[in-house]
Amino acid sequence: MSEIGQHSSMTDGDVYGKRRILTERADMFLGYSIYRALVKSIIFRFVIISEKVAKGPARLLIRQAVLQLMTAMLAVIALGACASNEYMGISLKPGRADPQLQELVRRAQAGDKRAQLELGIRYEEGDAVPVDLRRARKLYVLAVADEKRVVWVYSPPTTRASKGYVIPVVVGLEKPGLKDARERLQAIDNRRVR
């Protein structure tokens, strides 16, 4: 029996399963391999330590504390990754690019379809940015996509024998994609085919 099995009722398979589940959750949140490797090793060590050290109610408290700590770490790392200083190859740091271009990029990053189209046109034509049809196409795809906000609502069971359901509910008005962007996207795709 393993060292963990001697101190608790958990088997090596249970610890490995917990580690696998926790690292899969970490992978969902993290995009950087360095952070991913660091968080995986920390998670595995916390799970092993919590199983070795405590017994009974104290084990549950340690597990809860460890999960809260890991959640906080993941949130900090994920938020740090979200605060990008660049979008579509254009720096958002003050003084690194034309202020009007930076404002256009910020609007495009925030989901403004008209700004996505304008930035795509700039990339297609090489206006204040280098010609890059791949980035132009990505921006056109974003500008073409219909946008609707969906909220998932839990509907509890109505009787003891029934189950609850999660129902998608569309909130607000649907924003249709831009026709101009669709035409430009088709033109780029036609160029690629030839």
Rank of each mutant, 00 (worst) to 15 (best):
I188L: 15
G172V: 03
V170K: 06
L60M: 10
K52I: 13
E51A: 12
V66M: 07
V141Q: 11
L22A: 14
M88H: 01
S50N: 14
R20V: 09
L38S: 07
V39A: 02
S155Y: 04
Q68W: 01
G17P: 03
E103H: 04
G89C: 07
A26E: 04
I42W: 01
R194F: 10
L178T: 04
I77P: 00
K113L: 15
R149D: 11
G95E: 03
E86F: 10
S91T: 02
K55H: 09
L173G: 05
R184L: 13
V153R: 11
I4P: 00
L74P: 02
L79E: 14
F44R: 14
V150G: 02
T71R: 07
R137W: 04
K175Q: 13
E51I: 02
T158A: 11
L185I: 08
R107L: 14
H7Q: 13
F46Y: 09
L173E: 14
F46A: 14
L74D: 03
I167N: 08
I121E: 02
A58D: 09
A26S: 08
E124S: 12
R149Y: 09
D12H: 11
G177I: 03
S41E: 15
R149W: 05
R106C: 00
R20F: 08
K148F: 03
P130W: 00
S41A: 15
G17E: 11
I49Y: 03
A72V: 04
A78N: 11
A72S: 12
V150I: 15
V141I: 11
L92W: 07
I121K: 02
R137Y: 06
A110C: 09
A37C: 03
M1E: 13
C82S: 14
A108D: 03
V53L: 11
A143N: 05
K40L: 01
D14H: 13
A161N: 04
A78Q: 12
M88N: 00
V105L: 05
D180L: 09
M10H: 12
V193I: 04
T159F: 01
L173T: 05
I121D: 01
S33C: 02
P57A: 10
G89Y: 05
L178A: 05
L104H: 00
R106A: 00
V129C: 01
D189F: 02
V66I: 06
K113A: 15
G111N: 13
Y32M: 08
L79S: 10
G31V: 09
S8D: 10
G164N: 05
P176E: 10
E86S: 10
Y87E: 05
I49G: 03
K40W: 08
